[in-house]
């Protein structure tokens, strides 16, 4: 891998809390200018890993490098972190709150004020500038928190479940904003359990389950490698063929068609030949890529 373009590298990192191992021997790297999806079910170790990346906790074993060096206060100021547990001072005014978070990231007030105006405008919150946080709706405070993450113009953005609690309109809006940030050559890591969103936004993904890495790489390649063995099928009859455990791993039923997951040894043309042979009426037979959701469920189940 090209060292110059590596924003983040995690090498053999382990973190334990007492007897519980939250992250075990985890290694991956994130290339600059890409959107990196951090996927996995609840309790897989996503938040623990992210906390180690932003320097809130320290790994028990292994090494984390950001922008080619260890975590120093200077490096920290290049990260924007939106934690899963959102928090704002309730009684503080929006403007004061943003100024404070900017100051904590080392932004001078004049510069901060300029960026606050820009971002409040961009997030359609300008008229709330002098209101208290308690007056804001949940979605608005979420956007406010996102602004706080962006004020120091970070090179690496880490978003933990950025869409949770947003209505569909705002989810689309945030996706646009994220795409915009990506186009400025920033690196974005975001964790989510919404596979559809990850599928639309991510260039690379890592899938964690039970403290360990299950899968990682470029989204395209992962999907392509799974694609060979999934068939979208619409037919009547042929139940005996589909029940053959030698050929078919499992089936996902949709309203008028089925997704057939073949065994690794199974081949699509064999399935088609046997269906035709059995006299089934096949109206659709298409080799498809599985959705990320399918891969996620498949990997987490086993």
């Amino acid at each position: 891998m090209d060292e110059m373009n590596t924003t983040l590298s995690v090498e053999h990192v382990t973190k334990r809390f007492g007897d519980f191992t939250a992250v075990e021997d985890l290694s991956f790297s994130v290339q600059s200018g890409r959107v990196f999806g951090f996927l996995g079910p609840n309790g897989a170790g996503k938040t623990t890993t992210i906390r180690m990346i932003v320097g809130i906790t320290i790994p028990d074993e292994g090494k984390i490098q950001l922008f080619g060096s260890g975590i120093t206060p200077g490096i920290r100021d290049r990260i924007g972190y939106l934690p899963e547990e959102r928090g704002l001072y309730k009684k503080m005014k929006v403007l004061d709150q943003l100024r404070y978070f900017a100051a904590l990231k080392g932004v001078a007030q004049k510069e901060a004020d300029k960026r606050i105006d820009f971002w409040l405008g961009r997030m359609q919150l300008s008229e709330w500038k002098s209101k208290k946080t308690t007056d804001l709706s949940k979605g608005m405070s979420q956007k406010l928190q996102f602004i706080a993450t962006m004020l120091h113009n970070p090179d690496l953005l880490i978003l933990d479940e950025p869409f949770s609690g947003l209505d569909p309109v705002n989810v689309e809006f945030m996706k646009e904003v994220i795409a915009e940030i990506k186009s400025q050559d920033k690196t974005i890591i975001f964790s989510t359990h919404l596979m559809e969103t990850a599928e639309k936004l991510c260039d690379d993904i890592i899938l964690l389950n039970k403290s360990r890495k299950v899968l990682s790489g470029k989204l395209r390649e992962i999907k392509a490698s799974y694609g060979k063995n999934v068939i979208s099928l619409r037919c009547s009859g042929g139940e005996a063929v589909l029940a053959d455990k030698e050929l078919v791993a499992h089936i996902v039923e949709h309203s008028d068609e089925k997704e057939i997951f073949l065994k690794e040894t199974g081949r699509a043309k064999d399935l088609l030949a046997r269906l035709v042979e059995s006299g089934a009426d096949v109206t659709k037979f298409e080799s498809i890529e599985p959705s990320l959701n399918d891969i996620f469920i498949d990997k987490v189940k086993t």
Partner: peptide, 17 residues
């Protein structure tokens, strides 16, 4: 306790020691 209850500390801790 307020910073803990509102979970602001996580943002704070990622910004300053």
């Amino acid at each position: 306790v307020e910073e803990k209850e509102t979970k602001i500390s996580e943002v704070l801790f990622s910004s300053a020691r």
